[in-house]
Amino acid sequence: MNDTDRKLGPTILQVEGISLAFGGVKALTNISFEVKEHEILAIIGPNGAGKSSMLNVINGVYHPNAGSITYKGNVRQQMKPHEAASQGIARTFQNIALFKGMSVLDNIMTGRTLKMNAGFLAQCLYIGSARNEEIEHRKKVEEIIDFLQIQSIRKTPVGRLPYGLQKRVELGRALAAEPELLLLDEPMAGMNIEEKEDMSRFILDVNDEFGTTIVLIEHDMGVVMDLSDRIVVLDYGKKIGDGTPTEIRNNKEVIDAYLGVSD
């Protein structure tokens, strides 16, 4: 995979001069980068480099102390979570954040919350718009279930599923919102080789078939180098590299900080 054989669109997300501090701890310092439409961007860096914080800033869980976020042409100082969601930003979490008491189907249906608008009374009586809406969205959800090949577990409570499948369901929940920008926080953490291959395939397919822009955090260098069009490297809250996999591989500073000091 490289960026020459795929068409990248204009910039969809641009973060500029983002700084974030928790009390005296500086999580992010003056981070700027941009994401182009239809791109797969990886954010890498050692533990505590501020990768997850960066995603949290993008979809509004954290509010940065300085800097701006430009998403689809709108400049913002900070995002709010539901605002980010309604504008097509979805994400998954490093530690699975599924709704444990609900079935796979319900979890993914929840992902479509913002697309549903039946009135309260109709929902109480399960008539008219409420029922049609449930059925119509169920169809969409079943498409996602098919796509992720989890048909057999659709009625299982997610708490009973093995880890790899939970990760897959979480991706499904994010996809259900039909996002334009998908943030994946370590989608392959703790997986074995086969599961990683499956997940990589799903990520590439999402990017290909739905044209979704993807920002992902990952520690497995092989996966990162193979999947991503571009890589941003963070270290101690600062950006130390930004470029294609090949460029990053040969970046002296990155090698020093991340891959080990070269002799």
Partner: peptide, 27 residues
């Protein structure tokens, strides 16, 4: 009817994992 529809799912999502619920767009 309420608990099997959108509102019920929003409630259960808030119960199980409120941060994730918020990110999906449930206020």
């Amino acid at each position: 009817n309420i608990v099997r529809g959108r509102i019920g799912r929003a409630w259960m999502a808030t119960r199980d994992m409120d941060v994730a619920a918020e990110i999906i767009g449930i206020r």
